[in-house]
């Protein structure tokens, strides 16, 4: 399991726009970089990030090798009702990880 840093507010007022920030530990090997022996290391990146909240995809991103190592993403969503914010990352070599955070809407 890769280490993640996720910043989702625990509580929010209904209708408030909240900012979600995520960072996941990943090398994001570009597929263009030769190693010490001059052999180009094969690509190994996170291709897709999805955030679901209140039963719906609220944000989705497709990443390229141009995204820095330990991909950071920040985006916003409207706090509709109390529920689970589910964030998942998918990538090369079967990389898949899902994290959830509870959000209480008052």
């Amino acid at each position: 399991m890769a280490r993640v840093l996720i910043n989702v507010p625990r509580t929010a007022a209904r209708g408030e726009v909240i900012t979600i920030r995520t960072l996941i530990q990943h090398l994001m090997e570009t597929g263009y970089r030769p190693d010490a022996n001059g052999v180009v290391a094969p690509r190994d990146i996170i291709r897709r990030f999805t955030c679901r909240y209140d039963g719906e995809v609220v944000f989705q991103a497709e990443l390229s090798p141009a995204i820095a190592a330990n991909p950071f993403l920040s985006f916003t969503t409207v706090a509709t009702r109390s529920g689970v914010v589910e964030m998942s990352w998918e990538g090369d070599n079967g990389f898949a990880q899902t994290e959830t955070r509870d959000l209480t809407v008052t």
């Binding site: 900012t19 993403l73 985006f75």
Partner: peptide, 17 residues
Amino acid sequence: ITAQLGPRAGRAMLATH
């Protein structure tokens, strides 16, 4: 990067490295 969002986003904002 390509990000898909919608009215649920509240603000049209994206930040990355």
